[in-house]
């Protein structure tokens, strides 16, 4: 009898622990859903087997949830980037805007909208999501995912609406880290931001 009671107690503790974790994730999702516009600077650091040392690029990011617009602009060392306007995506290069032809490129860019809004409902369809505090880990449900092995997202501890860092690990061992700084939540965005 004591054995069954202990087992029940353990199960209850495990369940409440899992429930609290689920609640925390739900809480983050709710806070992030209040983000309507966003502007941030980013540093992108790539660790590739093909290179002896990591390489770094920098740029800015602007996002308008209602208009479904995203601009990802590299500034250093090269000026280029991409722009999403609803279901259309463009490459920005040398002050020109060209539609992105590659289906894979379009798919990846469109997925960024899901990531920016951290739409857990959509992400749960493709990723196993776990978290430790404000560090959230996404592992593809598809075991042999060709591009992603794991994605880790760090939220700001004081303001979980802000993503401070994202690390994307590839099956090859290569990985990319994006660090975000000077993030503004819900700033007014002028029309010039989205060319």
């Amino acid at each position: 009898m004591k054995y069954y009671l202990s087992l029940l107690l353990c199960l209850a503790v495990c369940f409440s622990w899992a429930q609290s974790k689920e609640d925390a994730l739900h809480n983050y999702a709710q806070k992030i859903s209040t983000v309507q516009t966003l502007q941030s600077n980013f540093i992108e650091e790539k660790h590739l087997a093909l290179l002896d040392q990591p390489i770094q690029s920098q740029g800015t990011l602007a996002f308008d949830k209602k208009a479904q617009k995203l601009r990802w602009q590299y500034q250093i060392p090269f000026e280029n980037g991409f722009l999403i306007e609803k279901d259309r995506s463009y490459r920005l290069q040398a002050h020109t805007k060209k539609p992105i032809e590659s289906a894979m490129g379009r798919m990846f860019i469109n997925e960024m909208l899901v990531w920016l809004t951290l739409d857990f409902d959509s992400l749960q369809k493709n990723y196993h999501i776990t978290h430790e505090g404000t560090q959230i880990t996404f592992t593809p449900l598809l075991k042999e995912h060709k591009i992603v092995k794991k994605i880790t997202v760090w939220l700001d501890e004081k303001d979980p609406r802000i993503v401070t860092q994202v690390k994307m690990e590839e099956p090859s061992g290569d990985f990319i880290v994006w660090k975000f700084n000077h993030t503004q939540i819900n700033p007014p965005l002028s029309a010039e931001v989205f060319p």
Binding site: K46, L48, Y74, N80, F82, I109
Partner: peptide, 17 residues
């Protein structure tokens, strides 16, 4: 070289090598 500094390298690194 330019692609290495942008998101495009996610798709092209393997091709580059």
């Amino acid at each position: 070289y330019e692609e290495l500094f942008s998101f495009q390298s996610i798709f092209t690194t393997q091709k580059m090598t």
